[in-house]
Every structure is written in C-alpha cells, then in structure tokens.
Amino acid sequence: MRAETAAAGHNLKRTQINWFKYSSPQTFFPLAAKLTPWFGAAAVLLCAIGLYIGFFVAPTDAQQGDAYRIIFIHVPAAWMSMFLYVVMAFWAGAGLVFNTRLSGMMASAIAPSGAIMTFIALWTGAVWGKPTWGTWWVWDARLTSELILLFLYFGFMALQAAIDDPRRADKAGAVLALTGVVNIPIIYFSVQWWNTLHQGASVSLKSAPTMAATMLLGMLVMALGFWMYCIATTLLRVRRIILERERRSDWVAQYVRTMK
C-alpha cells in the first residue's frame, strides 16, 4: 500500500508543448487584450471603406434603384452568420476532443456575435423586402434558413445559460453545436426544396441585380469588416468569461488588484 499527497499545483500545465501555449486562459488573457484594439480599428476602417463603396461607388440598380444597396450589409451579415456557426462548432468540438478550457470559452464567446449577425441579416432582409416586394417578410429560402439558424444560436445560448457548471455547459454546448453543424446543410437544402415546391423561384433574393465588380468588392470589404468586428467582440467577451471562470485563481486576484 502506497499513498502520498502531492502538492496541489498547476505545474502540469507548464510541461505542455508550445503549440498549446495560448490555450491556457491565463496566457491568452493579455494576448486578447493586446489584439482587441487592432481588430476593432480594422473593423471600423474596413466597414467605412465598404460602406463608401456601397453607397457612393457602386452603380444604381436599374430595377431596384438604390434600395438594393442594403445588400452591402445584408449579404456580408448572412455570410458571417453561417461562418461563425461553423467556427463556433469547431472551437466547441476542439474543446470536447482536447479538453482545453479556452476552446469552450471561445465557443460561448462567439455565439452572441453569430446571433447578432443572423439577426442583422434577417432584419435587413425584411427592410429590403418592403420596397422590393411590398412585404416585410417573404418565406424566401435564405431568409427562412437564417431564421432557423437564429433559433439554433438561441438554443445554444439557452442551453449554456441553463447549466451552472461551466465544464458541463461547454461540453453540452459542444454536442449541440456539432449536431447543429451536421444539420445546417440538411436544413438549408430542405428549406430550399420546400421553397421551390410552395412558391416557385419568382420571389427570391437570387433575383438580385447581376453583380457588378464594384458591388462584389463592396460586399467583400464589408464582410472582412464584419469579420474583424466579430473577432474584436469575441475577444472582449472571452476576456470577460475568463475573468468570471478563473475568479478563484491567484492571477485574476492579482489582475483585479492592479486594475484598482
């Protein structure tokens, strides 16, 4: 019979290979603080350029007039909303596989950004619909998929909010996010199929004006801007989550003291 008590300590973590260096919340926390302003500035700059291209450089559309210009917000937001779900599922899955705490925190931090992007895509879609088709909401395939995507984001956030233990919240969220990611293509195609069955392709965002090169450029710049914005807000949020979850640790206590 052998029994001993080893000193409690975090010396295990130090021996991890360098690759995982920033997977520790403690090392990532200051890095995130350093990166946030850069991404924030990039977001402001790119969005300004994108909006300038969208409102002043891109030509007026023959059919829709200036109303179409909302696509410079609508389309990039829709792109980001789907992209962010995949990124969120990636982090959540990585957390499940490698058991790194930071991955789960990243996933929780991305979710609100994703939901906001989805909401923007839905809202601008409705605003676009009013002058174009005379109605706020059309059961267009893309709008409907966006709506379901919004529900998926809400489900993820509600599940995490309902679980008190952060470790369980991360893992449960990961299973849900991965299930969602398998489902999203299926949802997308079934909604598209449903749309062709019930409405025909007559009313669809696909009938948007044929893309001029400047329009595409504007949308791409805006998408980059949104991307930078999402990274910046995610980093802000992940810092808050790190502080909250690590509140018992010495380094957070020290950090809080220096803030005073």
């Binding site: 379901i148 299930t179 489902n183």
Partner: peptide
Amino acid sequence: SLLVLPLYVP
C-alpha cells in the same frame, strides 16, 4: 423544445 424543434425542420 427550443433545442429540438429547429432540428426537426427538415
């Protein structure tokens, strides 16, 4: 229901 209903859509 919040988690499952969206997944039921297809």
